[in-house]
Nucleic acid binder design. Structure first.
Lengths: 137, 137
DNA sequence: GCCCACTATCGTATTTTTGCGATGATAGAT
DNA sequence: ATCTATCATCGCAAAAATACGATAGTGGGC
């Protein structure tokens, strides 16, 4: 054993621990390689939860199928799963999984409508995403 | 055989082919489920190349380590690979790979400085990303 | 020339993601 | 009650992503 995957979570822990110092005012310079050059900017006031949510949203859209689903939804006020299944050349079960990823990430929301489920963009979360990205970078 | 992976590219092809109709004016409604409800908005004037680049950028930041690297870079005008290696609890070779992903995606750029490489945010691409995301959603 | 600091790449192992068909679960119609 | 439509979930296989150590390459100092 040892896919060395344990570090993936450790990154958030260690790095975030250091990052919290910046929230305190002293900007974190893990390595002060040239004190003459001051850190640039950015409060980076982002909580661990917010960061995790952002990463999840980034990851969700980092896939062609899901990106296509989002583009599809952008052009209409909402649609049911079957519409997307018809639109895309992939199996229903696969589409369902992608929809779940998008829903869990917060990009879309689904309203049960009889036996069908009506999906639409999650406007509030999308606005939040754009706002946060704007703040950080 | 059958990882059924061939469709992943096909999605872009098929869906994009339909999407191009929208660029022509007639908004693509794969399934016209209720003509009374008009499509919402969005020109979605995005080329295949632009979409591919966007997806790559999304995917790149959908990873905790790379997100942490970006946060690190945001707080300073630039730094060398070694600084990031010291900052994060992961191996140098792994950091190097992540930096390559970020560089290929266009989030950062690296300038050779002697034996070292100075990495900094790719301001132009970041601005482009925010602009495109704002346009689409 | 020879070393040292700094990165990138190679080879490999593990985990995660992606996709499918088959099967379950639920709502509405007959 | 049964059938149909709709969607989610399960189980599995293939591919991609992630991580490491080891190794190669490059530039600067001696």
């Amino acid at each position: 054993m040892s896919g060395h995957k344990e570090n993936r979570d450790a990154v958030s822990d260690v790095a975030l621990a250091r990052a919290e110092n910046s929230a305190q005012g002293s900007i974190p310079t893990a390595v002060d390689r040239d004190p003459a050059i001051p850190p640039v900017c950015c409060s980076l006031a982002i909580s661990g939860d917010e960061q995790a949510k952002l990463i999840t949203m980034f990851k969700a859209l980092g896939n062609p199928v899901r990106f296509e689903i989002m583009k599809f939804l952008v052009t209409r006020p909402g649609c049911i799963t079957g519409d997307i299944v018809e639109y895309l050349p992939i199996a229903q079960s696969t589409v369902s999984q992608h929809l779940k990823v998008l829903r869990d990430a917060g990009w879309i929301e689904g309203a049960i409508s009889g036996a069908a489920v009506n999906y639409c963009l999650h406007a509030r979360n999308i606005a939040w995403f754009k706002e946060k990205v704007g703040e950080i970078f």
